[in-house]
Design a protein around this nucleic acid. Sequence first.
RNA 1: GUUACUUGUCGUA
Length: 315
Amino acid sequence: TVAYNVLINGFCLDGNVGYALKLCGQMIKQGLAPDIITYNTLINGFCGDGDLQKACWIYDGMLGAGLVPDLISYKILIRELCKHRYIKKANTYFQQMLGSNIIPDHFVFNILIDGYIKEGNMMEALRLCDKMVAFGLVPNVITYNALIHGHAKEGNLQEAFRLKHEMFVYGLIPDVVTYNLLINGLCKHGYILEASGLCDEMISKGIVPDKFTYTELIFGHCKRQKIDKACEILIMMQKKGLCVDNIACNIVFRTLCKRKKTEEAHKLLERMKKNDLCVDNVTYNILLTGYLKEDKLQQARKLFEEMAVKETHAS
RNA sequence: GUUACUUGUCGUA
């Protein structure tokens, strides 16, 4: 059974869940009973496939086989339900889990908290924080990051920064994600100077900015129409050996398009194509909306056909 | 032996 479980997981990780399922059938034929681990692996496999239906189907099969879901089963399911925005259902499973005397850990709470935040329900997220404390669990850096994300998204930067300070009170050290979230919040609201300052602060504290940090700063500069500043950062990223990916390029590209700097935009696009990892759906969407806004329907249609050929999904 | 939660671009009715 152990050997099968390992194999099944291997195929799941490989994205070949169908074959993993076949293997499960094969092990049954050999008289080996799938255990809770086998089921969890398969459920997780289908979840990674985005196939919630099949995941639930396996889950039911597990119940039918008389196996009792454990903490791991619940974590997998709850996370997937949250991803699909079925937060109510996720909560139902959570309650069921508590009802069957399974001791929750940081992960389940963080998953649920993040689920509520993604739904825009900060109240419930905060209530869950209290609940987690009631279970003797102390919110950790990830919990705080999720909350900071929520507040920043709502535009409540004050509260986001207050939480950053509160972290120290509880002996938690803000990490690169914490800083990235705050920098992102500042940039989104046009506070590029403050964002740059925060970037300096993190460096002085020994936290190394990553490509998220710099991409957010690029975004901030673009938002203030400082394309040259944005390009400076692009160059600096390359010098630091950070990969400049399609996201960073798209941001600059979009700004160039918006400002009707068509020539420079095309130059960038050519360079992106040369480095050939850079033209994606988002790039196309940017171009499309640009054309549509300028009533260049012909070009828009042409582009749309090009997308269809490349089998990118028009979204 | 299986699960591991939080951050970046367009869009998301």
